[in-house]
Design a binder for these strands. Structure first.
Length: 466
DNA sequence: ATGTAC
């Protein structure tokens, strides 16, 4: 430990930079060494700048640990599909309402059931939402600008999405196979840790910022956690396979296979990844569209008068080209955040969130709480402007399935007033609250470190799982 | 995470 909640692994062996882990004693003592070994391997990759970082929700991932941040020099460094993850633009959106808990509490079940009918989850492939091949090209090129042009959202939704929901991309770099997987999955939730929750604002920590974001105590919010579904997965698979044949970059672990950013395949991957990111933004936007229709159907009012506005939609599995100050020099970097959330403070965001910093949305487990944070001014120096992305798994999926019984988990959640609708019983045990670290503890760490400011805490009322 | 094993 070098400071409270901060550990370092000094450069050793092939490491080009040190590794920093933002975690407390208790969480550190509960984890095994493997994710830290992965972090040391990342610190050995070509062109890595300053340090490799781990967030308090760190756990084992494909090559790179989940909960990791690593930035590479754009001109001399690499981009790595394993540093983004299979679920490109896995992320979170948060929707506010002006409906109070008292006015909604008798309708939570109706709302979840109505949304469950319209948003495919788990292995349910019957998407009610049809797009054609031309739409797919537009989605991959333009992101949510496509959705808004088709009437599936508002101009305000664009302002409230990271990168305005549209990254510089090239659909030609996405395989036909990936597109054919995505064409039936627009507006679908997926499975595993993906969820849709109706929440109540439980506590406000920063009244002024919360109000600016549209968050008021005891009001109903909706949080969605999903990504680019099979399309992003296929993009990752395609490029990992191609790199396995072509790449001659030496890596400590085959899963870390990478491309120089300026190589043909590196540039192609970035364009394909950004196309998949646009698909992910659209996926969450179409789910927002369906949520608005469900609320209109249950409350018999239009979504504008119910105040259903997007607070923010963000990615926590991405590599992004950003400029950062390193030793008083401005450097162009490609910042990999895998299971880590961008958290730029005030002054580093643009548009609507210039003076507050953009909302940082951190989902917890389905029995506890979720948080809204903002980036603190120290954060650019500490982690390239990042924060944690969730509670982080405490048990592997298999261990969780062995440890819990689905009926007990549902009963326990029901006793806490939480209505759960799941597409499979396995997901209930995999995702049982006991499978996760304590979200309150994880948030306390990023707050105490001065990385993030806590804005609000939300508790689940109704949960939909894949 | 994932048409949960091409």
């Amino acid at each position: 430990m070098i400071d409270k909640n901060k550990y370092v692994i000094e450069r050793t062996g092939d490491m080009k930079v040190p590794a920093y882990i933002y975690i407390n004693d208790e969480l550190l003592s509960k984890m095994n060494d493997e994710p830290l070994r992965q972090l040391m391997n990342v610190a050995s990759l070509p062109g890595i700048v300053k340090a490799a970082y781990a967030m308090p929700d760190i756990h084992l991932g494909y090559g790179f640990p989940i909960g990791g941040v690593a930035a590479f020099d754009y001109d001399e460094g690499i981009v790595s599909p394993g540093g983004v993850g299979y679920d490109i633009n896995c992320g979170v959106s948060l929707i506010k309402t002006n409906i109070s808990y008292n006015d909604a509490k008798s309708r939570i079940k109706d709302l979840i059931d109505e949304i469950f009918k319209n948003v495919p989850a788990g292995i349910d492939l019957k998407s009610s939402f049809r797009v054609n091949k031309n739409d797919m090209t537009d989605i991959l090129s333009d992101g949510i600008k496509w959705a808004v042009s088709k009437g599936y959202g508002t101009e305000r939704d664009i302002e409230s999405t990271e990168e305005n929901g549209s990254m510089n991309s090239n659909p030609d770099k996405v395989s036909e196979k990936a597109i054919s997987r995505g064409i039936n999955e627009v507006g679908s939730l997926g499975g595993g840790n993906h969820f849709l929750e109706i929440q109540k604002v439980d506590r406000i920590f920063d009244e002024r910022t919360a109000r600016y974001f549209g968050i008021e105590k005891d009001n109903i919010m909706i949080m969605v956690h999903t990504g680019s579904r099979g399309l992003g997965h296929q993009v990752a698979t395609d490029y990992l396979m191609e790199l396995n044949e072509k790449s001659d970059i030496k890596v400590k672990d085959r899963q870390l296979i990478s491309a120089y950013t300026k190589s043909g395949i590196g540039e192609s991957y970035i364009m394909a990844m950004n196309s998949a990111a646009n698909f992910g933004f659209v996926n969450r936007q179409i789910i927002l569209y369906k949520i608005r229709r469900a609320f209109e159907s249950v409350f018999k009012k239009d979504f504008e008068s119910l105040g259903l506005d997007l607070v923010y939609s963000l990615a926590h599995n991405m590599a992004k080209i950003e400029e950062h100050n390193i030793d008083n020099k401005r450097l162009k970097l490609i910042v990999h955040r895998k299971g880590a959330t961008r958290a730029f403070p005030a002054g580093y965001s643009t548009g609507k969130f210039k003076n507050t910093g953009h909302p940082v949305l951190i989902p917890g487990d389905m029995g506890t709480a979720s948080y809204v944070l903002t980036g603190n001014k120290n954060n650019m120096e500490m982690s390239f402007g990042s924060s944690c992305h969730g509670a982080g798994r405490a048990l592997s999926r298999k261990k969780a399935n062995d440890a819990f019984n689905p009926d007990d988990v549902l009963k326990n959640l029901g006793n806490h007033g939480i209505y759960v609708r799941a597409a499979s019983s396995k997901v209930i045990t995999e995702e049982a609250p006991g499978s996760y670290k304590d979200i309150d503890e994880v948030i306390k760490i990023v707050s105490e470190l001065g990385m993030s400011n806590i804005i609000s805490r939300h508790v689940p009322l109704g949960v939909m799982k894949g």
